[in-house]
Amino acid sequence: MSTPTELGLSVFEPPCHGCRKWRPTFAALSVVLCVLAAFAAGPAGAAPLSDCTPHRGTVVAVDFAHWGGPIVRGCGIDQPSGYALLHAAGFTTAGDAHDGAAFICRVGNQAFHDGIVYPTSSEDPCTVTPSTSAYWSYWLAPAGQNSWTYSPVGPMGDVPKPGEVELWTFGATDIGGTGGSGVPRFPPSTLRAANAAPPTHTTPTRSTTPTRSTTPTRSTNPIPSATTRATTTTTATRAVSAPVRRMRTAHRSAAERRVASERRQPRRPARKRPAAPAPDRRRHGAAGSAPVVAAQPTSERTSSGSAGPLVIGLCLALALAAGAVWTMWRRRRYE
């Protein structure tokens, strides 16, 4: 997409020389028109789950077990951020009023309750940052790692890697993400792309696309010799972050794998009423009882609303402003 200024100026270039003084007006008008035209564009489509393989694409899953729902699993390929991955997989999200859309406060998918975003506004108004006692926590499991890592970055800062699994669970965690009801009780292997065995510890995909971990804009501004530079960066940071990651997950991985394998024994499928929240259900393990279903794309395109309220509101404001200017003008005249 070309920038609006050059687009607008090429369209609205005044044909005569005498109207040069109108040029700022034309420029402003063109910017406004471009903003209005941008409202009409729609979002991108969702990738089907079968597109993801152990070496291609990233699986993202959202655990609705807090509301008695399934784990909804989707797929995204070469997404610039974890946030874009959620949307590419067909999830709808909402931020909170304080932090903006990048702080995931509500998540929903068409596969669960017709796409209602949870938590609902009666549970959390999503006006300020949710507390650590009930929020969507973000978990990563890179290719080859069979335990969850509490993401050190937000969904906008994370860059999904091929073969990775990302998980969103609702509940409480402590600050380090080591305890609380939001910690996932099932290993990432239950969610990985199923059409091949889990990849080994050395993944070839990482070395083939090393620039992925640095910038989401790699496709728009290719930089010469970026490959070598980025490779060194990647290895260096991996060397730093690997002990940290081991430290975080070591005390959990072995025990949890055992617990999770026990829980995968067939249990009585306790289907509750859909609207009733079941917070204690998390204690019994989500992967054992809750089914894993594929994400569905949003059914209807989000409309961009109508411009009517905008016009009415601006007219009201303009009328008031005109009243103020008129009063000041009369005041100045009579003094």
Binding site: T3, G42, A44, P80, Y83, T214, T215, N221, T233, S241
Partner: peptide, 21 residues
């Protein structure tokens, strides 16, 4: 804050790479 898939890019500033931490 990073781009989303449906975003409309107005212009681009030179990007300074920051380390992963």
């Amino acid at each position: 804050a990073g781009l989303e898939s449906g975003d409309h890019v107005l212009f681009e500033l030179p990007h300074i790479r920051t380390p992963r931490w």
